[in-house]
């Protein structure tokens, strides 16, 4: 039984269907990727899972409970932690205070008046590698740092399911790599991780299962190798369809462009290119 299941989730805004009958799942101890072009509905689906957006249709099951109608905070208490694509760090608090707030909420109101130091705060900051920034205000740190801060903050509530919305954008190559290791460690400890991500190296490197979303629909689900060689996925990502005769741009340019969208740092020349395996 999966820890999280999205069953036939549909979200409509006016005439636009952002998520269209989407199914996906996440398992404990495993990292699941959710990829797709901009506007495919990935973030909307995250909002549905965490309760920020009520679905037009469909259900969300978490730990064998139907949580479709449960409020955001109850889902968090059940063990859902998340980060945001558009950062939601508490800008007027320091990095340490951000994590401390999450610990306070997690520990409950009774702990608020004790004044004991929580060792876990420092540990979490160390785990994501933000020691240098502890006393800086969250609105003054670089984007990548703020993303890692959101990860630390989400981890502070000891989640069983961690939803990460583009966690690596703003990180450099080395940081992305150590972030990947962090995710693998978390998974090894039993955490289920669901991740929206544009960095294909990261996604292909750490995910066991990948769901591909296009126009709100899950068009493919599989292992990194399967996804890599899937023509539909390539078409979705590159922006051309197989039957398109109007394509004038050579495939290698398109591939390069895709890689660029995926790559955190185009000045890095040692990137391995994931796409277009099946081309021969």
């Amino acid at each position: 039984m999966a820890l999280l299941e999205a069953i036939g989730v549909t979200v409509r805004f006016g005439g636009i269907t952002a998520v269209d009958d989407a199914f996906l799942s996440a398992e404990p101890g495993s990292i699941t990727g959710l990829i797709g072009p901009n506007g495919a509905g990935k973030t909307t689906l995250f909002n549905v899972i965490t309760g920020l957006q009520p679905p037009t249709k469909g259900r969300i099951r978490f730990k064998n409970h139907d949580v479709t109608r449960a409020p955001v905070d109850r889902r968090a208490k059940m063990g859902m932690g998340r980060t945001f694509q558009r950062l939601e760090a508490f800008g007027s608090l320091t990095v340490r205070e951000n994590v401390q707030v999450a610990r306070d909420v997690h520990a409950g109101a009774r702990s608020w008046f004790g004044g004991r130091k929580d060792k876990r705060v420092g540990e979490l900051i160390e785990i994501v590698g933000l020691d240098r920034y502890v006393n800086q205000r969250a609105d003054s740190v670089p984007t990548g740092v703020a993303r890692l801060l959101e990860v630390a903050r989400a981890l502070a509530i000891e989640p069983e399911l961690l939803l990460l919305d583009e966690p690596s954008s703003g990180l450099d190559e080395a940081e992305t790599e150590s972030f990947g290791t962090l995710l693998q460690n978390l998974a090894r400890e039993g955490c289920a991780i669901l991740m929206v991500e544009h960095d294909m190296d990261l996604v292909m490197g750490v995910c066991e299962l990948i769901h591909v979303l296009e126009f709100g629909k899950v068009i493919a689900t599989g292992t990194p190798a399967q996804i890599r060689s899937n023509r539909a996925v390539q078409a979705a990502y590159l922006g051309f369809s197989d039957d398109s005769t109007t394509m004038q741009v050579p495939d290698d340019i398109a591939a390069a462009a895709t890689a660029m969208l995926a790559a955190p740092n185009p000045t890095e020349t040692t990137l391995s290119i994931p796409a277009v395996d099946g081309e021969g």
Partner: peptide
């Protein structure tokens, strides 16, 4: 984002990274 479509109609292209234009030229 659909670089292929954009490049098809473009006379020139530029690449941005980290808040700067890091490369420009014809397609």
């Amino acid at each position: 984002q659909f670089a292929s479509s954009a490049l098809r109609v473009a006379d020139y292209a530029a690449v941005m990274h980290g808040g700067r234009v890091v490369a420009t030229g014809e397609p």
